[in-house]
Design a protein around this nucleic acid. Structure first.
Lengths: 122, 122
DNA sequence: CATATCGGCAACCTACTGGTTGCCGATTAA
DNA sequence: TTAATCGGCAACCAGTAGGTTGCCGATATG
């Protein structure tokens, strides 16, 4: 018998590990140092223009713009045009849903391990 | 006076928004549906071989291997060679550090908003 | 032993990402 | 009105990411 078959023994799997892959884009948006650092600058809650955010960014304004678009599409920031500038604001709620997700995942993992333990001790 | 200058008024900024950009690679590793779904399969806590994980994966075993390497490098899974197969296991602790990070960020945001509010009411 | 399975290695392809430069219309400041 | 600033649009480029195929050594199975 192979190792794999041995592991597929009759361990109960009540709640069958359904984790939504939906949040991938949000994780992807956070998976870039430049974007994380942009979020950092927005972390004080005040809206910032693109030019402002580009000031000490060592990359071009256009690059910053692209990153902001990614962040906005992922729902991590919002933008509003005010006069000739576009002001970006951090969306706090987006983090909440992300934390919910991680909570769900780790809770599910705990449950699975608990079931596994119960099975072994039976 | 420009909008930007107007916003840069004397709002206190005590803890100056230092968010580490270090976790970017972990977010990046999570920022892919295929990898999230691999993690899902590992979510029951049992080690799985590459072949096993490739079974209903609709992509090649080699592709799965690459994804697993990404996940391992990000610290989300560990691997151990057992006989002729490589067994991968979900690392639960990695989620904890990620949740810590998100907690820090959102707490920092709350603090900043609190400071802002106090300033306005003064 | 012969055969099948597991998985590492390498080459290759395509598409996307992060970044650049150049231009130009709109808004604001002098 | 003239000049400066803000930022959108487009083209372009190099590098990486996701995926494939082919091969081959190592380990199990019969």
């Amino acid at each position: 018998m192979s190792n794999a078959e041995m592991q597929n023994a009759d361990i109960p799997n009540a709640a069958p590990t359904i984790i939504d892959t939906g949040p991938a884009p949000i994780f992807a948006a956070l998976g870039d140092r430049t974007r994380l650092s942009l979020l950092t600058k927005l972390g004080d809650g005040r809206p910032r223009s693109i030019a402002d955010l580009s000031l000490d960014a060592e990359i071009t304004r256009q690059a910053v713009t692209k990153h902001l678009q990614v962040l906005e599409q992922a729902g991590l920031v919002t933008s509003a045009r005010v006069g000739r500038e576009s002001q970006f604001t951090f969306r706090r709620e987006s983090l909440d849903s992300l934390m919910d997700y991680l909570d769900r995942v780790s809770r599910q993992w705990d449950d699975a391990l608990e079931r596994l333990r119960a099975f072994v001790e039976k």
